[in-house]
Simulated assay, not measured.
Amino acid sequence: MGDDNVAADQLRLFIERIERLEEEKKGMADDIKDVYLEAKATGFVPATMKTIVRLRKMEKDARDEMDALVETYRNALGLH
């Protein structure tokens, strides 16, 4: 029975840690949203900023490949 209590305590501690981290994650997401709203209020376009953030996370080779594909698709569709 003692092992069951230890396992239950461990599980509870894991769950509580996850819950705290989820709350921190929500707080961070709210902070990020606030920054985008602040940027929008000064005239920047949040959707474009989100694209730039995503691009900056990418490796240069992956970004170059994506740029080439987008350009190919744009040309194919006559979007110059």
Results as ranks from 00 to 15, higher is better:
residue 53 V to D: 13
residue 48 T to F: 12
residue 49 M to A: 14
residue 67 D to S: 07
residue 71 E to W: 05
residue 32 I to Q: 12
residue 63 R to Y: 00
residue 64 D to K: 01
residue 72 T to H: 13
residue 45 V to E: 15
residue 39 A to V: 08
residue 32 I to H: 06
residue 77 L to F: 02
residue 65 E to C: 00
residue 37 L to P: 01
residue 33 K to Q: 15
residue 39 A to E: 11
residue 69 L to H: 03
residue 63 R to W: 00
residue 40 K to D: 13
residue 52 I to A: 09
residue 70 V to P: 05
residue 76 A to S: 12
residue 40 K to A: 09
residue 52 I to H: 08
residue 45 V to H: 14
residue 55 L to E: 15
residue 54 R to F: 06
residue 44 F to Q: 09
residue 57 K to T: 06
residue 66 M to H: 04
residue 68 A to E: 12
residue 46 P to L: 01
residue 44 F to V: 04
residue 44 F to G: 01
residue 39 A to G: 10
residue 47 A to W: 07
residue 50 K to I: 04
residue 66 M to W: 05
residue 73 Y to N: 06
residue 29 A to W: 02
residue 53 V to S: 08
residue 72 T to S: 11
residue 35 V to W: 09
residue 63 R to M: 03
residue 40 K to W: 08
residue 45 V to L: 14
residue 58 M to V: 03
residue 37 L to K: 14
residue 38 E to W: 12
residue 76 A to Y: 08
residue 61 D to C: 00
residue 56 R to T: 11
residue 59 E to K: 09
residue 53 V to Q: 13
residue 51 T to K: 15
residue 56 R to N: 14
residue 34 D to P: 01
residue 31 D to E: 11
residue 32 I to N: 08
residue 37 L to I: 06
residue 41 A to Y: 01
residue 45 V to I: 14
residue 78 G to Y: 09
residue 73 Y to M: 08
residue 57 K to L: 04
residue 36 Y to G: 10
residue 44 F to K: 08
residue 38 E to V: 02
residue 49 M to V: 13
residue 68 A to K: 11
residue 75 N to I: 05
